[in-house]
């Protein structure tokens, strides 16, 4: 089962190490991790995607809560939520296939943000499935490089954490 955890933490040195250490010590693999500052500059928000057994997840959440620098832990997957990730993909492109690539980019409502003689760099935003889909379609052209931000997520509706 895949879980999307939102973890509010003190914006201090060492917090990322504390949190990631908790996972690795339990042999629990992190699929995606994104960290950034929130509307309150003293608080950072981590979005952590993990897949695993519910019992292990419950332990991880409790252990996270035990960390002094962790303010709140929420499993967003237990409710309605929206999630997005941004990926930058550098694809081989020349005069022959550029049009085809642009078509794919348009369908995915992605953008080309850099063009060179032998490549284009694409910016795409979406959930995991969308990024996977565009990646599959671009693969035949030859993906030279790819960087992803990791997923960030918020609860749906007007309520906040």
């Amino acid at each position: 089962m895949r879980h999307t955890l939102a973890v509010l933490v003190e914006n201090k040195y060492g917090v990322l190490a504390r949190v990631s250490g908790l996972f690795s010590r339990r042999g629990f693999n992190i699929d995606s991790l994104a960290v950034g500052i929130t509307e309150d500059p003293t608080i950072s928000r981590m979005t952590i995607i993990v897949s695993g057994d519910d019992h292990v997840l419950e332990q991880v959440m409790k252990q996270l809560n035990k960390l002094i620098d962790v303010i709140r832990v929420i499993d967003l997957s237990s409710e309605e939520f929206v999630e997005r990730e941004l990926a930058l993909i550098k694809v081989n492109a020349d005069a022959n296939n550029r049009a085809e690539i642009i078509q794919i980019v348009d369908i995915f409502r992605a953008r080309i943000i850099d063009v060179a003689s032998k490549s284009v760099t694409i910016e795409v935003t979406g959930d995991i499935e969308k990024i996977k889909a565009i990646q599959t379609l671009l693969k035949p052209f030859g993906i030279k490089e790819m960087a992803r931000t990791g997923i960030v997520a918020l609860k749906r509706g007007s309520k906040s954490l």
Partner: peptide, 9 residues
């Protein structure tokens, strides 16, 4: 880190 309740520098 894994053997303290918390630590500080």
């Amino acid at each position: 880190m894994p053997i303290t309740k918390h630590n500080y520098l």
